[in-house]
């Protein structure tokens, strides 16, 4: 028995060094050499300054921007506090939150009618950092964004189509738009600089 305790203690330390230190550090070195942009968080930079990450959702509330989904991460899109709302399907708090979001969405986008509100527009994601919205959600926001920027809906609609990411290999995942990407594209259109 004593022999086995001694073996167990030594094996624990050896495996800790191999799998807990050498393996992650080796992976870090290889990843940093092979995929530096991804390994460091796919950070988006404008004129050298980090404006966010392509993968991490960030809040947008202005009328000129496409809005992301509601977020339950911290105070909303807190990228140090990921998580969902955890509200159950029969929760009154969920029903109230969705009702309020639906009312707000219809105020901001008067073209939007009850019964046609895209589900991802009024529900919080599991991570609270969902960088994407569905094409249905984007289309519902087109008239507002176009009005706020004083450009035609057709132009914004074309941008939405250009920014829509299709399913991977035609069948994996769902079609979606990256909110940061499309808002950046809006800003960089001629005459639309911030």
């Amino acid at each position: 028995m004593g022999r086995h305790i001694w073996i167990a203690a030594r094996l624990a330390v050896v495996t800790l060094l191999v799998f807990g230190v050498l393996y992650p550090l080796a992976m870090t070195c290889i990843a940093q050499a092979a995929f530096p942009r991804q390994a460091n968080g796919s950070i988006v930079r404008l004129q050298g300054h980090a404006v966010g990450s392509e993968l991490i959702g960030q809040p947008f509330t202005g009328r000129k921007y496409f809005h992301p989904r509601p977020s339950a991460a911290g105070g909303g899109y807190d990228a140090c506090s990921s998580g969902g709302s955890n509200l159950g399907p029969s929760s009154r708090a969920l029903a109230d939150a969705v009702e309020n979001r639906a009312a707000l969405a219809m105020r901001q986008n008067p073209e939007l009618a009850r019964g046609r509100i895209p589900v991802d527009m009024v529900t919080a994601s599991g991570s609270g950092l969902d960088p994407d919205i569905s094409p249905a959600n984007a289309c519902a926001q087109v008239p507002r964004v176009a009005r706020a920027r004083g450009i035609s809906e057709a132009v914004v609609r074309r941008l939405v189509e250009e920014c829509t990411v299709r399913r991977t290999a035609g069948f994996l995942g769902e079609p979606r738009l990256n909110v940061l990407r499309i808002n950046e594209a809006l800003d960089s259109m001629r005459g639309q600089r911030r």
């Binding site: 989904r69 529900t123 919080a124 994601s125 991570s127």
Partner: peptide
Amino acid sequence: HMEGKEVRFG
């Protein structure tokens, strides 16, 4: 039911 789910996974 998209509450708690990500758009990219659906």
